[in-house]
């Protein structure tokens, strides 16, 4: 699978990653090489194989629906980039 610069830009946008224009050809080359490696999987016949979700075939454990955590908002916000009145601040979204 060969990715071009437009593909890289599209994927970077999907992943919300700013990529420098100058680095795009390098990403295109390396990502294409990785996909070539990945596509060696196509050699395996997996028509009758089920996907493996968990090594021990475990299923999601459920816990009783009870409050176990106390509110630690102030503690958690100590290391946030920008907070005000207990809220996380981001650039204005709604005009």
């Amino acid at each position: 699978m060969s990715l071009d610069s437009d593909d890289v830009k599209k994927i970077a946008n999907l992943a919300r990653l700013q990529i420098d224009e100058a680095d795009i050809p390098d990403y295109a080359k390396n990502l294409s090489n990785i996909l070539d490696l990945v596509e060696q999987m196509d050699a395996a016949d997996t028509d009758k194989v089920s996907p493996m979700a968990h090594p021990l075939d475990a299923v999601q454990r459920l816990r009783p629906d009870a409050v176990t955590e106390e509110n630690q908002r102030e503690h958690f916000q100590e290391h946030a980039p920008k907070v005000e009145d207990g809220l996380y601040l981001v650039p204005q979204v709604i005009e």
């Binding site: 990945v38 999987m41 196509d42 395996a44 997996t46 194989v49 089920s50 996907p51 493996m52 979700a53 090594p55």
Partner: peptide, 13 residues
Amino acid sequence: YYLKAQKVRHLIS
């Protein structure tokens, strides 16, 4: 990709 890889994972296991 992902589904195929999870199947291959079964083969390996």
